[in-house]
Computed example of a mutant assay.
Amino acid sequence: MQTHERATAVISKYLKGQATTEEKEWLEQWFLEMGNAAHLELGPQTTAGQHKLQERIYDNIQHTILAQQQQQPGRKLHPLRWWALGAAASIALLIVANWYWQRPAPPATVAMRTVSTHTGQLSELVLPDSTVVWLNANSRLHFPATFGDMRQVELEGEAYFDVHPDPQHPFLIRSGAFCTRVLGTAFSIRSYAVSHSFRVTVSSGKVGVYNPADSTQMILLTANEQLNSEQDALQPNVRHIEAGSYTAWKTGALRFDKERLDEVVQALENRYGQHFIISDGQLAALPVSGAFDKQDKLENVMKILARVYHLHFTPTANGDIAIH
Rank of each mutant, 00 (worst) to 15 (best):
R260D: 08
G157D: 09
K258F: 05
A291N: 09
L32D: 03
D296C: 02
I323W: 04
S175P: 06
I321H: 02
N318F: 01
N211E: 13
Q282P: 00
Y192H: 11
I278E: 07
G281N: 12
P79L: 08
T21G: 00
Q54Y: 13
Q168S: 15
S195I: 01
A19N: 05
L135M: 08
V182R: 08
R174I: 00
H4M: 13
A87Q: 08
V115I: 15
M302T: 13
I219W: 05
L40A: 05
G49N: 12
L85Q: 08
S279E: 15
L122H: 12
Q70I: 10
Q69I: 07
V10S: 01
P165R: 01
Q71E: 14
E5G: 09
T251R: 08
N60E: 15
S139N: 02
L135P: 09
S139V: 01
N318E: 13
V115Q: 14
V153L: 07
A186R: 12
Y192M: 05
S229E: 06
L234T: 06
Y309F: 11
I241Q: 03
M218E: 15
M112E: 12
E263C: 04
V200N: 04
Y160H: 09
A145R: 11
E154W: 12
A87F: 13
S123N: 13
E33T: 03
G157V: 02
A48P: 00
V265L: 05
K294R: 14
F256E: 06
L220P: 06
A233E: 10
Q152T: 14
L183N: 04
N300T: 14
Q266K: 10
H169M: 00
K206R: 15
G148L: 07
D149T: 09
L183V: 11
A9D: 09
A213W: 00
I304Q: 05
G252L: 03
P144F: 04
Q18C: 06
P236D: 07
T64H: 15
K76V: 12
Q226S: 03
Y210Q: 01
T64A: 10
S279K: 14
R271D: 05
V133R: 05
L40E: 09
I278N: 05
G49K: 14
A84T: 05
Q72W: 04
S130L: 00
V10D: 03
A306W: 07
L155R: 04
S229P: 03
W101A: 04
N270A: 03
T247K: 01
A159N: 07
W134T: 09
E230A: 14
E154K: 12
H63L: 13
A177Q: 15
E33S: 10
W30Q: 02
K206E: 13
G17Q: 07
T180C: 05
N36M: 02
L66A: 10
P128S: 07
G208D: 06
Q50N: 09
P44H: 01
Q235H: 09
V301S: 08
S130M: 01
I321V: 11
L221P: 10
R151Y: 04
N98S: 09
G176T: 00
R75Q: 12
T47R: 03
T314G: 00
E5Y: 04
P107W: 07
V301H: 08
Q274R: 14
L135R: 03
P106L: 07
S195D: 14
F143Y: 15
A19P: 02
H324C: 04
S229K: 06
A322I: 03
A253F: 09
E242D: 15
T3E: 15
G148Q: 10
L93Q: 01
